[in-house]
């Protein structure tokens, strides 16, 4: 009994502390941005730049897989802008009229990169040198469920490597896992987005895939229909496509 009381008192104090956090004095508009997880770094760097330019707007991000985010928006999760890593997820919202069609814009494009561990020499220097003789384990995204895996499969099929590599492919449930396998040296090489490769300090890009080996990897963004801040949301999308926004995206490996 004593313990329970102690516990309740603790909770009370924690709530008190949270309640006491000072609030902003001036009214700001808060934009809720649902963004693909691969945009995490670039958006965090972009946030202060944008907020300096528009002092009355504050950005909040909700990062996740594009498919899940789209699902959440359809279910009515509050969101002003949706930045997707795949066009099909954006299409889903468009069919349901959940986005303002006229605001949809492709603000970035990504490339596929063949990566290797920085400290571990590999026998390949380009995509077409990959074979079961040169590579023991090739880490990729699972082609049916992970977007990067779908593009990877297109590339390997285009190069007629897909069937011969079956025993060497280590399929992962997300990009982070592919990176981990290469970072720890368990897989000799892996295939991820160029922007993801740049995020890791422990891998190097061996080669990038020709963009005509796979469907274009577009990042569409749009304003969500339910928003009550469409003016501010449009400002944000405009900023992404502006010179400053593009420069930041390039810095993080997007085209």
């Amino acid at each position: 009994m004593k313990k329970i009381i102690y516990f309740l008192v603790m909770i009370f104090f924690v709530l008190l502390l949270i309640g006491c956090t000072p609030e902003d004095k001036e009214e700001k508009t808060t934009l809720m941005i649902s963004a693909a997880a691969s945009l995490t770094d670039v958006l965090n760097e972009l946030k202060p730049v944008f907020e300096d330019e528009h002092p009355s707007i504050e950005l909040t991000f909700n990062f996740g897989g594009s498919g899940k985010l789209a699902q959440m928006i359809i279910q009515g999760a509050p969101s002003d802008v949706f930045l997707s890593a795949s066009e099909s997820d954006m299409d889903k919202l468009q069919v349901e009229d959940m986005i303002l069609k006229e605001t949809r814009v492709n603000f970035a494009e990504n490339e596929l990169a063949l990566i290797a561990n920085k400290n571990q020499p590999v026998k390949v220097s380009s995509f077409d040198e990959i074979s079961s003789a040169t590579v023991e384990h090739l880490a990729i995204g699972e082609p049916e469920s992970v977007p990067v895996g779908r593009y990877t499969k297109q590339v390997l099929e285009h190069l007629e490597l897909w069937d011969s590599l079956q025993g060497s492919l280590v399929l992962s449930s997300d990009v982070r896992q592919v990176l981990t396998h290469v970072e720890l040296g368990n897989a000799d090489v892996g295939i991820v987005y160029a922007s993801d490769a740049l995020r890791s300090g422990k891998v190097t890009i061996v080669a990038t895939a020709d963009s005509d080996w796979h469907d274009p990897i577009m990042y569409p963004g749009a304003v969500v229909s339910d928003t009550s801040h469409s003016k501010e949301a449009k400002l944000f999308l405009a900023f992404l496509t502006s010179e400053k926004g593009q420069e930041l995206l390039h810095k993080h490996g997007f085209k």
């Binding site: 384990h137 880490a139 699972e142 079956q166 025993g167 280590v170 399929l171 449930s173 896992q177 396998h181």
Partner: peptide
């Protein structure tokens, strides 16, 4: 398991 063993169909 997915982390350590990876997902290699058939293996």
């Amino acid at each position: 398991t997915l982390m350590l063993a990876g997902y290699i169909p058939g293996k």
